[in-house]
Design a protein around this nucleic acid. Structure first.
Lengths: 255, 255
DNA sequence: TTATTAATTGTCACTTTTACATTTAATAAT
DNA sequence: ATTATTAAATGTAAAAGTGACAATTAATAA
């Protein structure tokens, strides 16, 4: 039995795997590909959006999919997600959170691949300035996106649920806003994420009471004659209070 | 080059992997072992406990570890967790939730293994009746447990944090109680999980206001002369309200 | 009959939440 | 210069929820 006349590489691989494992690993256990897929959310001032790419390899080449890639030998899944996001958006230090693992045996028809889902929040403007079109990434309205490959549609639905959940309790939505933003902008973002209308007076009071915002001198006059004051995040309080439970959505208890 | 005179199975494995992938998979991507590890919490009426096993294989044989195992070819990680829990506790339909993935490249010294962490909540009494000692599982006080292998200590810490977090908002702790339980029992459980003392009057009022409990005729007289009334869960309301945000812990906002 | 012990329950002050409409600041139009 | 227009900013009162506090009750044991 030589390498040259092997008719079935696959079985030989299995055979050698078994031998190798008996010698130096966990005997006979199966090995899988491990990937990460990122659900990247952004906000353009009006609508919640999601960043998708045209898949570059078979199968399903040229179909829309989440940004993803395989976990390399020297990196953790978190590292992989950061690397892949940087490659596709040019951005570093993006807000990133593990969603869950997707591991149905048949989810990838080519070969068993487990995928760690991440959701990411980015400032869409920061992205736009740095974009080079090498990766064919494109923003879609969250409610008007193309069908995605594999189980990516489910990932998007799960990520949206989790975004809503977290945003009701923790001030994560600021991650999608530019450094300077107005209260009306913030409110629209909250309304988008929660698919609901919020009372202006109550929202403003609630946001103020968190103590997370610092009012600036400057006004944004693009939206109205009167103009709306810009605010910025109080970074220290933001970091310190991030884990605390807020109550940012009306009727939270009956969601 | 024949199989018989190969001096290095590992390199051959790599070589073949690359060939195999070029033919029928994703070319050249590394494959890893994937395991699940379960952080199993229980409550004995007094203290929060965790279920550990003596590891049965090298390395670290006979050291304490979480209940775990590899994900087989025909099952998802969720399936694997259920299978492995059943094998080790005899219980089916246990409350199980994905915690996160643990994937540092060197976390297992033998071979790269990614592990999906799960936390499980079980009624410790139900377990005790079904135990057979085949698996050398043992309950430990959460605050007095042995050092665990690999990164399992971190998993336990993470799981505890998540348990606390979820228990503050959702009625998951009932999963650790028997069908009939008293309010004082429930309160002790909440106090254990949150490492805090809770005012009896406020706790009782808060729990009642959820509408999740049904008062029974019977009393538990083991703890006092007066006896404490048993309650049971209103299963329908429990299922319906599970996703709603409650506020079960005092001073929730400043945790 | 009394003592004992844990279970059960009530009140008040304070905070938070909700529902709801008017005033204000700037620009554009006359 | 005055007025019209538009979105931003703000206030209040009623209701619900929260936290801090101690007295009463039901059973058994002495």
């Amino acid at each position: 039995m030589t390498i040259n006349n092997l008719s079935n590489f696959y079985n030989l691989g299995k055979f050698l795997n078994a031998n190798r494992n008996a010698m130096r690993g966990y005997s006979g256990q199966p090995h899988y590909l491990v990937a990460v897929d990122c659900i990247v959310f952004g906000f353009d001032g009006e609508h919640l959006k999601i960043l998708l790419v045209k898949r570059g390899l078979e199968p399903e080449k040229d179909k829309w999919s989440l940004i993803g890639g395989f976990v390399a030998e020297d990196e953790s899944p978190d590292d992989a997600a950061n690397r892949i996001l940087k490659k596709n958006t040019g951005l570093e230090g993006i807000y990133l959170e593990q969603l869950q693992i997707y591991g149905e045996p048949k989810r990838d028809p080519i070969e068993r691949t487990l995928s760690v889902g991440y959701f990411a929040l980015i400032d869409i403007n920061k992205y736009q300035t740095q974009i080079n079109d090498d990766f064919h990434a494109e923003w879609f309205l969250i409610n008007d996106r193309p069908k995605l490959i594999f189980d990516h549609d489910k990932m998007v639905i799960d990520a949206r649920k989790k975004l809503r959940y977290k945003a009701a309790l923790h001030p994560i939505l600021f991650e999608m806003l530019p450094k300077k933003f107005t209260i009306p902008q913030l409110q629209i973002l909250f309304e988008e994420v929660n698919d609901t209308k919020i009372d202006t007076r109550n929202f403003s009071r609630k946001i103020s009471s968190t103590g997370l915002l610092i009012k600036l001198e400057e006004k944004d006059k693009s939206g109205s004659k009167k103009g709306a004051f810009y605010f910025k995040l109080d970074k220290k309080k933001y970091a310190a209070n991030f884990q605390a439970f807020l109550n940012l959505i009306p009727n939270l208890k009956s969601i």
